Amino acid sequence: MEFKDYYKILGIVENADASAIKASYRKLARKYHPDVSKEANAEQQFKEVGEAYTVLKDPEKRAEYDVLRKQGSRRADGGFQPPPDWQSAHTGQRSHSQSSNADYSDFFDSIFGSSGGGFRQADDFQRSAANQRGRDIHHRIALFLEEAHLGCQRQLSLRVSEPDQNGFIRQRDKTLNVKIPAGVIQGQHIRLAGQGEAGVGGGKAGDLLLEIEFAPHPYFAVDGKNILLTLPITCWEAALGTSVEAPTLNGKVKLKIPKGATSGNKLRIKGKGLVGKTSEVAGDQIVTLQVSLPKTHSSNAEALYQQLAECESEFNPRHVFER
């Protein structure tokens, strides 16, 4: 099997902390998201980044991976040999989030939950559990906020296990067209009945569980059902008050800036957040104001600032430091 250097994939150092791991993942997930990236291998890169993050964000998996990475050996043909008597704590215990599918490489499956070689004879299954229901497959799907808010159609490629005509369990790639309903939220699961792995001995097929995650957005953030936005305004807009355009998931709206606004003031736009579920009231958009100044000023502007300083000479914002 080919060794996967998860630190190199995420572009981080070995002693990177959790925040650095998450920040790198968010940046690369945005870069290689198949819907926006123009890279020729964007989909594969996106999957590798997700796999690396799955391991390194989990302290137990990361510790086990670090041991394997340091003690294993890489062969001349590019393969990888685990250390002698290597035994993963996860071997044979593939969890729901680690089902063998297109998200994970053979390296990941062999270390964190492979069923062992990709096939077993059908009578092995029959001896252990006749009429056994197939495994559920858990699959993460990254959406832009606009897609989550309005709903969308997605095509998924998965790898599932099923018996062939000779009774051997083998891997098969399949493609599904999935409708994502409007109003899904981070962490929500969508169940597609019968789209998981095939059952054994006449058992029903498992289900496909899609876990929703949000791809990083250039200017929006999410807090539950609320959308967060930092909105730059000029110092004169803050001092005099005005109305400005602010972006929302439904397009631009007019937002009233109160007279005397300062950086850090928060304004609420009701009903412009995420729906959550179709039966629930939508969240709000929380706008944090950030007063911005030009990097350079004209001579006329500097003269006006000088006049302002003279007119407001008694104002001292640092009076709290005086004793």
Rank of each mutant, 00 (worst) to 15 (best):
I111T: 14
A102C: 09
F119H: 08
H96Y: 14
G118A: 09
G117F: 13
A122V: 12
F107Q: 11
Q98D: 14
Q126P: 00
S95C: 11
T91Q: 15
S99T: 03
F112D: 00
A89G: 11
R127I: 03
D123W: 09
F108V: 11
S128G: 06
H90F: 14
G92A: 08
S100M: 10
G92P: 12
R94V: 07
I111N: 01
Y104W: 13
A89T: 02
F112E: 06
F107K: 06
T91C: 14
S105W: 10
S110C: 03
F108Q: 04
H90R: 14
S114W: 12
D109S: 09
S95L: 09
G116P: 01
R127D: 12
Q121P: 02
R127K: 12
D103K: 10
Q93Y: 09
S115L: 05
F112G: 00
R120H: 15
A122P: 00
N101I: 02
R94G: 12
S100P: 04
Q121D: 04
S88I: 02
S114M: 04
N101S: 10
H90V: 02
S100H: 10
R120D: 05
S105C: 11
I111S: 03
F119V: 04
F112I: 06
S100T: 09
S88T: 07
G116W: 04
R94Y: 11
R120W: 04
H90P: 05
G117C: 08
Q98G: 06
T91D: 14
H96L: 14
N101H: 09
D123F: 09
G113F: 06
Q121Y: 00
T91P: 02
A129E: 08
H90D: 07
D106L: 15
F125H: 08
D123Q: 06
D106F: 15
F107A: 07
S105N: 10
Q121C: 00
N101R: 11
F119E: 03
D103I: 07
R120P: 01
H96F: 11
D106I: 15
R94N: 06
G116L: 06
I111Q: 06
A89V: 00
H90E: 10
S105H: 12
S105P: 08
Q121V: 00
A102V: 06
D109F: 00
G118T: 07
S88A: 11
D124V: 08
F125S: 08
G116F: 03
S97F: 07
Q87C: 09
S95K: 15
S105V: 09
D103V: 00
F108A: 03
F125I: 05
Q87S: 07
Y104E: 01
F108E: 04
Q93D: 13
A102M: 09
D106A: 15
H96E: 06
S100A: 15
A122H: 08
Q126N: 14
Y104G: 01
H90Q: 14
H90A: 15
H96G: 12
T91W: 12
N101K: 02
S99C: 07
